[in-house]
Design a protein around this nucleic acid. Structure first.
Lengths: 216, 216
DNA sequence: CAACTACGTTACTGACCGGTAACACCCATG
DNA sequence: CATGGGTGTTACCGGTCAGTAACGTAGTTG
């Protein structure tokens, strides 16, 4: 805790202006952690591994983070922020047309899997949803970390239900939830199927069919 | 749950002449492991915890299992067997009518979440898919365990695509994959949403809509 | 009885891992 | 030059964990 309160910072169109300077080590640790946590899981990465990857040492780590859990919390929030960025970028070209926004979102998922061009939260796919995976590993009595994941998933649901409502669907909540199941299923299956061959490749088509069914 | 057909003991038996009898401790360990692994994750449960829950000790553990990884492998296979049992039970009443089979399957998922009556793989829900969660935790270089999960997920996909083909759907593979995304999304989201309130409650409705769309 | 099997008990190893102490260094700024 | 913040280095602590050694015990079977 302490330090920056960048949670869900607005960050408008322009670059984040240099408000206050960050120590370089801290950022390297965050970058290394993001990569290692995502690839090997949170419990599968020890502080020493992060520190070595970041080219620093354990003492510098604990000067920047009170505990590993604090780094994990920042990792989760960073991933979430990156995810909304990706989401907003995907739907932006179709602002005002909720159906197109959803379709673009689903297509973005497919693109992400098919060619590794775009980056999801700044990384090259293939291990699903960072936050969702974290939910598997976080002990159920860790309220702090679980709350981050729960808020994130709840926001996904809220957004998709809102799209469904805005496009005038019958039973918009059901449609929104169905779209969420597709999305989450896509992330989940990316863990076990090679990038290009999993069922997620059908997600855009399925989303269109579901939307059609709710619009008559 | 299930008969005592826990065999599959075609294993080595190089040193132990035991052939037909099952030690009781071994089964208690398996039961405890199934419960603890599912609730706390594989990496989150140590051998001592399993052993204590099973009312035995570590030495007896290592007399029955060469290593923790071997127990994990058995755990995964047990879960898979239980899952197919549950699946087959759900679709059995509608054998021969693939559409009804799929609908019954999806409805079984909803029932499982809404009331805690039925048991999924012999346990009271709320933490998603045991095999899928394991995929998050298993290191990517553990070919043995990963292969178990991959085979399992591939079989789910195969079955759902077959149902789609049998019901005469257009683009049956796409429909099968879409159904799989719903199913997996349901499991995934059950990790973060309270049992009764998550998007999975809409899965049956969504499946029907998707099927309709592919049958026109 | 003897022998064998299954299980329990205690105590240990070696490793890993989160976290800390103490100290030294570089460099910017006053 | 002095000071202080950010960083590197080494060594360590306490706990956890997978796995093992050695021994003891109860029941079964011949």
């Amino acid at each position: 805790m302490s330090a920056k309160s960048t949670a869900t910072a607005v960050s408008v169109a322009s670059e984040a202006p240099a408000r206050s300077e960050k120590p370089r080590v801290r950022d390297r640790i965050r970058d290394s952690a993001a990569d290692l946590f995502y690839r090997h899981g949170i419990r599968g990465v020890c502080v020493d591994a992060i520190v070595e990857d970041a080219g620093t040492n354990k003492m510098s780590f604990y000067r920047s983070f009170p505990s590993k859990d604090d780094l994990v919390a920042e990792y989760l929030k960073d991933q979430e922020r990156g995810y909304w960025q990706w989401w907003d970028d995907a739907v932006a070209p179709h602002a005002g047309d909720p159906r197109r926004e959803v379709e673009a979102l689903m297509q973005a998922v497919v693109d992400l899997v098919k060619n590794k061009a775009k980056t999801d939260c700044g990384r090259r796919s293939s291990r699903g949803c960072a936050l969702g995976n974290a939910a598997v590993e976080i002990p159920e009595d860790n309220d702090r970390l679980n709350a981050i994941v729960q808020d994130y998933k709840a926001e996904i649901r809220r957004r998709l239900r809102r799209y469904a409502r805005e496009m005038g669907a019958r039973e918009p909540d059901s449609l929104g939830d169905a779209l969420m199941l597709l999305l989450e299923g896509g992330y989940y299956t990316r863990l076990t199927f090679p990038n290009n061959s999993g069922p997620v490749t059908s997600i855009a088509k399925a989303a269109r069919a579901l939307i059609d069914a709710h619009l008559n």
